[in-house]
C-alpha cells in the first residue's frame, strides 16, 4: 500500500521531478501575467489599448451595443496564454532530466498562488498600486 519515497535502486525507471515543476511553474507565470497586464491596463487608456491589441484575434474582443465585447480582457488572456505555453516549453526542455526539490517548491507554489489571488483583489491591491503610481512621478 504505502510506497517508499525514493527507491531509485530497486526501481528500473528513474523519475525526474523537473517536468512537474515546469508544468506547475508555467501556469503560475501565466497567472502573474494576467494580474500584471490587468493592472497595467488600468493605468491609462493607451496602456489599455496596448494590452487590448494583443487580444484582437479572439472573437468578441471588440464591439459595442447590447451584445458587448470582452474588451482588453482578451489581451490579458492572450499574454497569459503566451507566457504559460512559452515558459512551459522552455522549462520542460531545460529540466527534463533534472531532479528539483519538490518539497521546497510546494510551499513556494502555494504561496505564489495565494499572493497572485490577493493581488487580483482590488480592495487589497489598489492602495498599493496608488502608492506606487504616485511615487513613480
Amino acid at each position: 500500500m504505502n510506497q517508499p519515497t525514493h527507491n531509485t535502486q530497486s526501481n528500473p525507471v528513474q523519475l525526474y521531478s523537473g517536468p512537474i515543476i515546469a508544468a506547475t511553474l508555467s501556469p503560475l507565470l501565466g497567472f502573474y501575467t494576467l494580474m500584471i497586464s490587468h493592472h497595467v491596463s488600468r493605468v491609462t487608456k493607451d496602456l489599455d489599448k496596448l494590452v487590448h491589441a494583443f487580444g484582437y484575434w479572439i472573437p468578441g474582443s471588440t464591439g459595442t451595443g447590447p451584445d458587448g465585447s470582452i474588451g482588453s480582457y482578451s489581451g490579458k488572456e492572450t499574454l497569459a496564454l503566451g507566457v504559460w505555453f512559452l515558459t512551459w516549453l522552455i522549462f520542460h526542455f531545460l529540466w527534463q532530466k533534472q531532479d528539483l526539490p519538490v518539497k521546497r517548491w510546494i510551499p513556494v507554489f502555494l504561496g505564489a498562488i495565494g499572493f497572485v489571488t490577493l493581488c487580483l483583489f482590488h480592495p487589497f491591491i489598489d492602495p498599493i498600486l496608488l502608492l506606487l503610481l504616485s511615487s513613480g512621478r
Binding site: Q3, N11, L15, S17, P19, I20, A23, F31
Partner: peptide, 27 residues
C-alpha cells in the same frame, strides 16, 4: 481562469510519468 492551466498541469504530469509516478510519494 486558474483551474484550466492547473488541471492541464495535472493531466500532463499524470500522462508524462505514467503509473511509475507512484514510486515518488512527493510527486
Amino acid at each position: 481562469l486558474f483551474p484550466f492551466p492547473l488541471m492541464a498541469a495535472v493531466s500532463f504530469v499524470l500522462y508524462y510519468y505514467g503509473d511509475a509516478i507512484h514510486t515518488r510519494r512527493d510527486l
